[in-house]
């Protein structure tokens, strides 16, 4: 049987659905990763059938504030690495994953960096080459706009002086 190309399952059916595919011949684990959709995190795994070369992507959706999913690591060689990476980068907890060590980051870093809410620090400390006004209306030239445009990925108040502390120091001097 050729499995469907794309399969969306409930999180509770995750393990059962993927193991069923493996039993049908999708024995090769390709990758597992996640996508931050705001309220929910999508987790996707791609498994392949080495005989037919057919690949199947299985998706599921977990709430962002309770991102938990059964680990595939007992059933697929290679899943551990991707689950460790997805845990570290997106904050998804894989239940039953034996090796929970972080791959790259210190455990104390804070928010998982691939969540869209996490500020892109490198962008906050560098001048944005795109800060100049758009010129497709042919009027503004490449001149920096008066109203500073912020790059995507940096919250408005990130690394900028807190207004209240400025007001306070102005009051005391």
């Amino acid at each position: 049987m050729t499995p469907p190309l794309d399969l969306a399952v409930e999180p509770g059916d995750w393990l059962r659905s993927v193991v069923a595919l493996r039993d049908e011949g999708c024995e090769v684990f390709d990758f597992l990763t996640a996508v931050d959709r705001g309220q929910v995190i999508e987790v996707v795994v791609r498994v392949m059938n080495p005989a037919t070369k057919a690949a199947t992507m299985v998706w599921t959706t977990v709430p962002a504030d309770a991102a938990e999913l059964a680990s595939l690591s007992e059933h697929y060689l290679g899943a551990t690495w991707c689950e460790r990476e997805t845990a570290e980068m997106f904050g998804v907890r894989f239940m039953g994953l034996a090796d929970q060590r972080p791959l790259l980051l210190r455990a104390t870093l804070g928010r998982p960096p691939m969540l869209k809410e996490s500020a892109l620090v490198a962008r906050a400390v560098r001048e944005w080459p795109g800060a100049a006004q758009a010129t497709d209306d042919g009027r503004q030239g490449g001149n920096p706009s008066r109203r500073r445009q912020l790059p995507p990925g940096v919250p408005d108040d990130f690394l900028r002086p807190d207004r209240s502390s400025l007001d306070q120091s102005a009051g005391t001097t």
Binding site: R126, G130, D136, G138, G142
Partner: peptide, 22 residues
């Protein structure tokens, strides 16, 4: 190139720089 800055803005690694005048 019309200096529209779209590529400069959208490049994920910020590796494009553009200077223009009118």
């Amino acid at each position: 190139c019309t200096s529209c800055m779209i590529c400069v803005r959208e490049c994920p690694t910020w590796c494009i720089e553009l200077e223009s005048h009118t």
